[in-house]
Simulated assay, not measured.
Amino acid sequence: MRRLAAFVASAVLLADPGPPPVGPKAACPVCGMRVTPHGAWVASLTWQDGSASHFDGAKDLFKFLAAPARYLPGRKREAVAALHVREYYGLKPIRAEAAWYVVGSDTLGPMGHELVPLATEADAREFLRDHGGRRILRFPQVDAAVLAGLDAGRF
């Protein structure tokens, strides 16, 4: 049974084509910062029409998800096809919904305190311990209060 579960999990990962490439002039729709110089932190949103929006970190991706029309008029959350973040250790894109996020660490992103995405719970626990993190969160736990806290340096 374990082998079957591992096979299914790997098949799902292989089936995920990942986000579209980031163009050299791509700018974060939340803060306007160019995304390319911050490649290790890139988060991406793929729209149902195949286009993509890229962010300079997971924190700005979550801010965008809370109010897409505020940052890209005419865009709605219902039109999102996929969300990806770049996991910290391997720098590979993973599904944002599957990531483990560490907050309150000594590792800062391009916009300061950041949600640091990790691929596994073990990676998140190791990162938390090694970088003085405060909490580990899952996708549904990241809300407006968490984002405001990160901006204010409160965890």
Rank of each mutant, 00 (worst) to 15 (best):
T46H: 09
K59S: 09
Y88M: 09
D143T: 15
M111H: 04
D106W: 01
Y89V: 00
R138P: 13
W41A: 03
D143S: 15
M1L: 08
P20R: 07
A145M: 08
A6F: 00
H38S: 08
G153Q: 09
R134W: 09
L137N: 05
A52P: 05
L14S: 13
V80P: 06
W41T: 09
A82C: 09
V146P: 13
G109K: 06
A122D: 02
G153L: 12
V12M: 05
D106T: 01
A5K: 13
A119R: 10
C28R: 10
D123Y: 07
L118F: 11
L65I: 01
Y89W: 06
G90Q: 11
A119Y: 02
D60N: 05
H38A: 06
K25W: 08
A26N: 08
G109L: 12
W41R: 03
V102T: 07
D56Y: 11
D56A: 02
A6R: 11
A79G: 03
L13Y: 02
L13H: 13
S10Q: 14
A9M: 02
P21C: 14
L115F: 12
D151Q: 13
E97N: 09
Y71C: 03
A82S: 14
L4I: 12
Y88V: 10
G32I: 03
A122T: 02
S44H: 07
R95T: 04
A99D: 10
K76H: 07
A15T: 12
A124Y: 02
T120K: 03
A98T: 00
R2L: 13
Q48M: 05
G74E: 04
A82Q: 11
P140E: 10
A26R: 06
F62K: 06
A98M: 04
V116Q: 07
Y89C: 07
R95Y: 11
R75W: 04
L91M: 00
Y88L: 02
K63F: 11
A15R: 12
T107Y: 15
L128P: 07
A40C: 07
A82H: 10
G18H: 12
L65G: 09
A11F: 14
S10A: 08
R135I: 06
D56K: 06
P140I: 08
E87R: 04
L65M: 15
R70T: 09
L118D: 00
R77N: 00
S10D: 06
P21T: 11
L45D: 05
R70W: 01
A124Q: 05
A79M: 13
A43S: 15
A43W: 11
M111E: 02
P17G: 12
D49K: 14
Q141R: 00
C28H: 09
S105I: 01
Y89P: 01
R135G: 11
V30T: 01
T36C: 04
L65V: 10
L91C: 00
P73V: 04
